[in-house]
């Protein structure tokens, strides 16, 4: 009976246990539900009313809501939630710099590490810059508050400087990195490593085995198939 639900529900339970231990359970559930909500609404609407089935629960106009559609929508939702909780828990409990530098220690290219971290840093940097530019534009009389029309009009003189200054900054930053031999081929010695306990090693090995087992189970048909 729990065929299509068991796996995702186990993952959700494990995530919630981990989040509770890390003290982020409330925030994790809130963020995950908010993130999955737009997709969840469309999945429910499309699945419940368009999925072919024999048991009609109710009818709205030309659309029949079937029990099979509800079941499919529910299975999809628990899977979405499992994915959102997993990604959310990872994001809330892992320092991105520590993560990427640890990957570099495990032979990831320094260039990839830079791209990953620079991307993470780019968004708050752009938001900060946009704030400064917005303040200076407002000081010169630009109306960025008030009606929707005024706000939309205010976007153009804001977006141009933000984008252009970001591009200039990227160019200067890449030059500064080149000066510091960033493009030099070969490996570099890292200054520190993340603490890695035996328990973490065992947990990683168990997760790896679980991953391989899941793929094998899926390929061989040992797991229940998606309806």
């Amino acid at each position: 009976m729990l065929g299509g639900y068991l796996g995702p529900l186990v993952i959700i339970a494990l995530n919630l246990v981990g989040a509770t231990i890390a003290g982020v359970a409330g925030r994790l559930v809130r963020v995950s539900v908010l993130l999955t909500l737009p997709i969840a609404i469309s999945v429910v609407l499309v699945s419940v009313f368009t999925r072919a089935g024999t048991t009609v629960l109710f009818t709205i106009g030309p659309f029949d809501a079937t029990a099979e559609g509800v079941d499919f929508a529910a299975q999809t939702l628990v899977r979405l939630l499992a994915i959102a909780l997993s990604i959310g828990l990872f994001g809330m409990t892992t320092d991105p710099r520590a993560f990427v530098l640890d990957l570099e220690r495990r032979r990831l290219s320094p260039r990839f590490a830079f791209v990953a971290l620079a991307t993470l840093e780019a968004v708050p940097a752009m938001v900060e810059r946009a704030g400064v530019i917005q303040a200076s534009q407002r000081a010169r009389g630009l109306d960025t508050e008030g009606s929707l029309r005024a706000r939309v009009r205010g976007v153009v003189p804001l977006a141009g400087p933000v984008i252009l200054s970001s591009l200039t900054e990227v160019e200067e930053r890449s030059l500064a990195l080149e000066v510091r031999a960033f493009g030099r081929p070969g490996r570099r010695h890292l200054l520190w490593r993340n603490p890695d306990s035996t328990a973490q090693l065992v947990a990683r090995a168990a997760l790896l085995l679980l991953l391989v087992g899941s793929i094998v189970g899926k390929v061989t048909g040992a797991f229940p198939q998606t309806p």
């Binding site: 710099r97 520590a98 971290l117 900054e169 500064a176 510091r180 030099r184 570099r188 010695h189 200054l191």
Partner: peptide
């Protein structure tokens, strides 16, 4: 600000990045 690597968590690591890139020992 444009000379900051963006990948260092501390000032020490920021200053150390160049020597690291040169492939020097720790």
């Amino acid at each position: 600000n444009t000379q900051r690597s963006g990948i260092a968590a501390t000032v020490f690591e920021e200053v150390a990045l160049g020597p690291q890139n040169l492939g020097l020992d720790v």
